[in-house]
């Protein structure tokens, strides 16, 4: 029934219409010189630049550098953050010892460390790797931790009263129940990791999409800047929607009635 389908997709349709309207208005504003295209660029100019850059090997080098920083920093944060979160969630004393450090790191935007990162790791990929890692690892630790704690409170007494061993309790109750929390953390962390890439490359880099944006900005190449920003938007949307989907899949493991 077409009427029903229309109703079902109203949000998407209205949203798409709004987006199209925005793009059209932008193009018109540039075409009729409501604002100087040198400042606001325009969708068609951005598309032209995108087509040009597609052919440019320098652009692909930038993409490669940025994705390397993102992927490795993010993976390292997962590899460190999940075990660490499990440990401080499971062992009270580990949380007492490490808690203050995590709190402090959580309070400070990790990008603040950029000047020191350059001094320690140089201007290449490694300083960005470090900033991406630091940005992403904290939300992963925190959400893994809170996942363990929530589960522990709920099920531990039951498990204990049935005489389950610590190992058994951990693997059969805590781990699966923690999974949805971990994915929530991963989603937050991906945003932080992307932020690290951008700031790190704006601050000091020899290559990367953020570096390209900074250079283009200095030379007033608005089209290129917009293209770079949109590239980040696109990446962010893709990464978060993949993670949101995974989060949803694991969500049925989430203990009922708990957070979200």
């Amino acid at each position: 029934m077409p009427g029903n389908a229309l109703q079902r997709y109203t949000p998407q349709l209205v949203g798409a219409a709004a987006l199209l309207g925005f793009v059209g208005f932008w193009e018109a504003a540039a075409a009729y010189k409501l604002a100087d295209p040198m400042f606001i660029s325009s969708p068609s100019r951005i598309a032209t630049v995108a087509a040009e850059m597609w052919e440019d090997p320098d652009f692909w080098r930038d993409v490669k550098v940025s994705s390397t920083e993102f992927i490795w920093g993010y993976l390292a944060a997962i590899a460190v953050g999940i075990p660490l979160g499990l440990v401080i969630g499971w062992y009270k004393r580990a949380q007492y010892a490490l808690g203050p450090f995590i709190d402090v790191l959580n309070a400070v935007p990790r990008v603040t460390f950029m000047p020191i990162m350059v001094l320690w790791f140089g201007i290449g990929i490694w300083s960005k790797f470090a900033v991406v890692f630091l940005g992403a690892v904290i939300p992963i630790i925190l959400s893994t931790y809170s996942g363990v704690r929530t589960n522990e409170a709920r099920y531990l007494r039951v498990a204990k009263s049935f005489g389950a061993s610590q190992m058994k309790t951990f693997t059969s109750i805590i781990l699966p129940g923690t999974a949805p929390y971990i994915f929530t953390g991963l989603k937050y962390a991906s945003g932080r990791a992307l932020l690290g890439v951008v700031v790190g490359e704006l601050y000091a880099a020899t290559a990367g999409v953020g570096h390209m944006i900074a250079q283009a900005g200095n030379a007033f190449e608005t089209d290129r800047v917009f293209f770079g920003v949109l590239l980040f938007t696109f990446t962010g949307l893709v990464v978060t929607s993949i993670l949101a989907r995974m989060e949803k899949r694991f969500d049925r493991w989430r203990p009922e009635g708990a957070v979200r």
């Binding site: 350059v118 490694w126 000091a204 020899t206």
Partner: peptide
């Protein structure tokens, strides 16, 4: 040849051992 974009920043990079 590595572009460090700026003298002092380059010295930071030098001290990191990257160059």
């Amino acid at each position: 040849v590595v572009s460090a974009e700026g003298g002092t920043r380059g010295l930071q990079v030098l001290m990191s051992g990257e160059i």
